[in-house]
Nucleic acid binder design. Sequence first.
DNA 1: AATGAATGAGGTTTCATTCAT
DNA 2: CATGAATGAAACCTCATTCAT
Lengths: 195, 195, 195, 195
Amino acid sequence: MKSSRPKYMQIIDAAVIVIAQNGYHQAQVSKIAKQAGVADGTIYLYFKNKEDILISLFREKMGYFVEQIQEGIKGKSSAVDKLFVLIQKHFQILSEDPNLAIVTQLELRQSNKELRHRINDVLKGYLDLVDRIVIEGKETGEFRSTLNVKLMKNMIFGTMDEVATTWVINDQKYSLTDLVPEVHRLLTNGCSSSN
Amino acid sequence: MKSSRPKYMQIIDAAVIVIAQNGYHQAQVSKIAKQAGVADGTIYLYFKNKEDILISLFREKMGYFVEQIQEGIKGKSSAVDKLFVLIQKHFQILSEDPNLAIVTQLELRQSNKELRHRINDVLKGYLDLVDRIVIEGKETGEFRSTLNVKLMKNMIFGTMDEVATTWVINDQKYSLTDLVPEVHRLLTNGCSSSN
Amino acid sequence: MKSSRPKYMQIIDAAVIVIAQNGYHQAQVSKIAKQAGVADGTIYLYFKNKEDILISLFREKMGYFVEQIQEGIKGKSSAVDKLFVLIQKHFQILSEDPNLAIVTQLELRQSNKELRHRINDVLKGYLDLVDRIVIEGKETGEFRSTLNVKLMKNMIFGTMDEVATTWVINDQKYSLTDLVPEVHRLLTNGCSSSN
Amino acid sequence: MKSSRPKYMQIIDAAVIVIAQNGYHQAQVSKIAKQAGVADGTIYLYFKNKEDILISLFREKMGYFVEQIQEGIKGKSSAVDKLFVLIQKHFQILSEDPNLAIVTQLELRQSNKELRHRINDVLKGYLDLVDRIVIEGKETGEFRSTLNVKLMKNMIFGTMDEVATTWVINDQKYSLTDLVPEVHRLLTNGCSSSN
DNA sequence: AATGAATGAGGTTTCATTCAT
DNA sequence: CATGAATGAAACCTCATTCAT
């Protein structure tokens, strides 16, 4: 679908709001259409089916994630600094759109296996960014040479995701971005006191 | 708890198999009943409704998690060793029951908010275990004194969960337990080469 | 079924209570069994099926109606007086057992056509009593000779039934028997002022 | 009220036919939809749920009752004449639609207490009509001044209802409207020969 | 391009009845 | 006689998608 058409983003934004407010299973196509100010049938002029709305939503928003992070790490020379920016941007974007945070951290997880596989494909682009930072860190010697890149990627993403989800579950009532330094420290040095 | 009656566990075990093989949304009560070798109505002699099957399933299995880990860390004197056992047992239990791994890592995540809240209550018991290990580590000086316990808990659980989910998505085709030492090292020392 | 067995009436009485308290559609066999202090299966030693309980209930109680009224009109020589006794006994019996009143006036009406036909058969015995009084009235000249017996029977039964039902719907909060004289007067003389 | 849309009445008319032919408990939504020539789901565009169909059915038809009777008594100056018209119209409407007669006299009585309460609310409008006639009769001196209005209302409605139900049970095989004069005479003068 | 009325498949749960003990 | 665990059929309603206008 061509994102040039104004109603395309209009519908995606409506989907974010409807899902955040009603939950994944109560986000019927008719509700999204109403929120977007279009007829039910119009949805199908821009999206193949309901699943396509969700995947497109995820792709558009995740694209913004990758874009922002790539922009941010451009000026950083060390992998350690780049990791910091990654965490910072990740938490910042979620903080800036409370509805999006609810949708990505909670609601979209309830989608079926099929849809989640498609979402994972979109996530690939993001995880590749993480991958590259980790590999760079090994090459520059900042990270230890025996590091398992895949596991490190799991730890980085798993930790950020769990921290963000906990924050959303607690109604986003504290500052997520304030946690960036400590999360960064934990990822680089772990919990041990000998670091 | 009616776990003393044999059909109770029989139905829960059937649910694990059916959900793992058909997916959460295709796990109809009639399929579970057939797999358990009982009539549809018999399900309702042991469970209030379908949701009750899933919560009970989670509670029974998660109870086994907590039990096994508590047993395992009993003999360990340091928090670092206890953390090792935690990861080991967690991965070991998932490895021992491929179907259960699929159900807990993928399928049960698609349940609605209501059910997920109930599941989170059950998870509390597990997360409290993690909490205690982290706090103990701070007290013994193994972990640094400035450690944010909640974030550390997020990192431990988020990492294990992400590693396990990745393993399930990849069809469990490598050894999850082989990853225990590296995951443990990452959690304690992070990725930095200076540790 | 032999009413000599004590559990027979025990189950019928339980049915009256359960239906009155829970309504016809919430009066499951298991509830009746529990109220009667017997096992579900025991019900089927005394009754062919659930419908049989209800028909038996109606027959037993309606038999008491007929019995009481026959007893009462025995000493009366005029049809007018017999009609008075009929109304009086009818209202009196309903007043004496509030639960039975609820069951016969409201709950048993919800039974299906089949059951209601069977109940009507039982009612025949009662309506024959009414019939005989009306015919007698015509013969003695108390009632006008052009009277349509069937319609008069309809009026007598329809009026008493409607008055009783209204009283039950209003939670039996006024005296039904106090209305006997006026109902009797209405049935004999109508509403007209010229009588 | 969506009665302006043609499918609304189409579905109600289908419900009357299906209930009359199959009985209340065998009148599934799918049968009504088929009879109305629409899809099952279409029903729910016009009615909230199945109960709503039945209440609407009753309201629409009962509205016609009240309308017809009000129209008929408009030209009558005496309460006695108005009562005659009431009976006449009541019996006439039932005679004109044999299916509706079955539904209102037999089938709808089996509905649960909740639904019957809702139906009684609709009946109020009809009974108020009766009320007004009786009161007027007392005021004009046609009816005796000591008349209990509520009981008289019970007698009028109870009698008409019982006569109509008896006629339906006997498969409507005689003329109901032929009975109007005698029913009217019974209600005004009772059975006594001295009137 | 846009509409929105119509479609129709699909599943949880209840409860009268049975029968092995 | 008595038990009560087990059975299994049956139906209301939702909602993604279509297509005539």
